[in-house]
Each structure stands twice: as structure tokens, then as C-alpha cells.
Amino acid sequence: MKHFRQFVVAGTVDEAIGLRKTVGAKSLYIAGGTTVVPMARESVEVLIDISHLGLDGISDQDGSISIGATTRLSSLLSPDIKAAVPMLFEALSHCATPLIRNMATLGGSLAGIYLPSDAGVALLALGAELELRGDEERVVTVDDLLAGGWLGGYELIRNVRIPKIGKGQGWGFSKFGRSDIDIALVNVGAVASVTDGSRISELRLAIGQSSSRPVLLTDLAEGTATEAISHDVIRRLADSASERVKVKSDFRASAAYRKHLVSVLAARSILAAAREAGARFED
């Protein structure tokens, strides 16, 4: 039994936003509920259910996949998603547990991105865009939204549009937890472009870790763009990524260990992405 006093099922997006504006800070949107219910923040008294707004579903457009915000994570573990957005599939298959994936929604796991969201880091690396509704509609990339301080007061996520990985691009995703079922101490998503099978010409590296919000680094490859791919190049890329990530110590890991993990996981993700993109080099 939780202390929530009211539960309102919104019929339309406008109604949901209107309710949230009226009640203010005492209210919260709820979709899957897997974060809202166990946290049960004392200040929250009214829940506005946004899972009946028709915001679920997957559509495959040319060059991108569009996923409704209230689509459940388990629905995304499908052969279609595996074919179209394999990095998201990979990230979600190591995310939480089957029981939680059956309730949790994609929008919900982004709204709570302050946690080390596996989906969030994958989408950040992939350059996904979010369709938001607050007072007005806006479309922003996950990266821009992070830079701008995340969602506004009563904004809700309607839809997520994920560009498909292009020719000559590859992806890699690594996660590290204290055991196989864990929130990520560190997770890293990489999207790499490889030229001539031998050089990383572009690299998008999204790094999540449980002590602060995820970051996206897009300029890493500039320094090594002319060098032939080697483990040494990959390590240097990973080390410079690690240097740029702000980490803190907490009971789950020390800052130094987190930095180390970022470097190791970044290297592993870059390697996987480069190989996927057709890089040829000796081990």
C-alpha cells in the first residue's frame, strides 16, 4: 500500500498535461510504474496515467524507426527491432529483468535518465530524437535535451525516432554491473564510421555511469582520423573519453574505478563498432 491519494487516467495528451499543470509538483505521470511505484516519493500525491493515450507502437519508416513512448521494453525485444536497431535490442536485453521489462516503457526509462538507463545510452549514441509535448510541441535530440537540463515541468515524451545505422557504420554496446542483474555501473554505446576498412572517421560515444547523467562525445575521432585502426588507437580513444567523463564515488563504486571502467568499456564498444563497420585489422 502506497500513500498516493489520487489516480487519474488521462484520456488525451491535452488532458494529461492540463491535469499536471493544475496539480503541479504534487503530481507525476505514470506509465509502466516501475520507477514511480517503488520510489513512491512522499511529495507525490496524484498520479496521472498516460498509458491509454495511444502513445505505444512501433513504425518502421525509411531510414528510421519510430517508437511510441509508452511502448513496453519487452515489446522492443523483437526480431524486427533486432534487425532495425540492434544496439537498442542489445541494450534492452541486459536491462533490468523480464518482469520489469514487461511493465517498464521506453519513455519511462528515458524520463528517468538520471539513472544509468541502458536504453537512454543506446539512444544517445544513435542520435535519437524525442517528440515532446508541453505547452507546445518540440522535437529535440536526446543530446540536446540533456544539455538543456532535461524535460520541462510537465512535458511528456510522445515518441522516440531512432535513425537506422547507415552503410559503413557499426555499433557496439557494453554494460558493466556488479552481477548479471544490476543497474549499470557504467554502460557505453558506440557508433563508428569506418573509411576504407582501416580508419575510424567518425565516432559517437555515449557513456552512462551511475554517478551522474550520461554524456555524448562526438569529436573523439578527430585526433585519430588519419591513423589506421589498432588496439592502441582504440585504447587512446577510450582513455581520452574516460578523461572527459565526470565521475563520483558512492557505495557502488569509487570514482577511480568508474573512470577505469569507462575506459575499458569504451574500448570494447569502439572495437565492436569498428568491426561491425567493417574495420579490418589484426588482433
Binding site: 489516480f7 487516467v9 510504474g33 516501475t34 511505484v37 496515467d49 520489469i100
Partner: peptide, 17 residues
């Protein structure tokens, strides 16, 4: 819940109408 296994402690009764 509608055929899918879920943790019922994470779900509020009003969600399952």
C-alpha cells in the same frame, strides 16, 4: 497480467482496470 509475467508489487491496482 494479460499473459505477461509482472512484479505485482510495482503495479498500482488502478493501472490494471
Amino acid at each position: 497480467l494479460d499473459g505477461r509475467p509482472v512484479a505485482s508489487c510495482l503495479i498500482l491496482a488502478p493501472q490494471v482496470d
